[in-house]
């Protein structure tokens, strides 16, 4: 597992920190330093609220390496309240209960582990809104 790669993205995975464009005020996630809307430089950090709704989803039965323990699980595209679409796993919900338009909120969970000896990777997932 690439420790440095995960370490570099800690803030976006733990806190959902992206960027805001100083030119057009567009919110950007994941951070990419260039605004996808106006193509101007955009390096100002922006913490997203973590609330959004399910835009689309699919249930995974044959998982990639490192994710087998959680099958079946649902991955979804989440439309964040601030605009961007984010792909993430859903958690704390049965697959049959997922619906397009469902309000969800970000939680920090274990995304994967590198075997019994490797590091644990934490990051964002989304669950049905509790409050």
């Amino acid at each position: 597992m690439e420790v440095a790669r995960y370490w570099r993205t800690t803030r976006q995975r733990y806190q959902l920190v992206g960027e805001v464009c100083p030119n057009c005020s567009g919110k950007i996630f994941p951070p990419r330093d260039v605004c996808p809307t106006c193509e101007k430089e955009a390096k100002t950090p922006f913490a997203f609220s973590g609330v959004g709704e399910v835009y689309s989803y699919s249930t995974v039965y044959q998982a990639a390496a490192g994710y087998e323990k959680a099958t079946p699980y649902t991955v979804a595209m989440i439309r964040l309240a601030e605009g961007p679409l984010v792909s993430a796993q859903l958690t704390d919900i049965d697959d049959k209960d997922v619906a397009i338009g469902m309000p969800v909120e970000m939680v920090t969970r274990v995304l994967r582990e590198d075997g019994d000896r490797g590091m644990l990777v934490y990051g964002y997932k989304f669950r049905p809104v509790m409050v």
């Binding site: 323990k69 959680a70 796993q89 958690t91 704390d92 939680v107 969970r109 274990v110 644990l120 934490y122």
Partner: peptide, 13 residues
């Protein structure tokens, strides 16, 4: 705890 939860994730929440 769920399969994606441990003391770190629960402490964070």
């Amino acid at each position: 705890n769920g399969i994606d939860e441990d003391v770190a994730t629960m402490s964070i929440e």
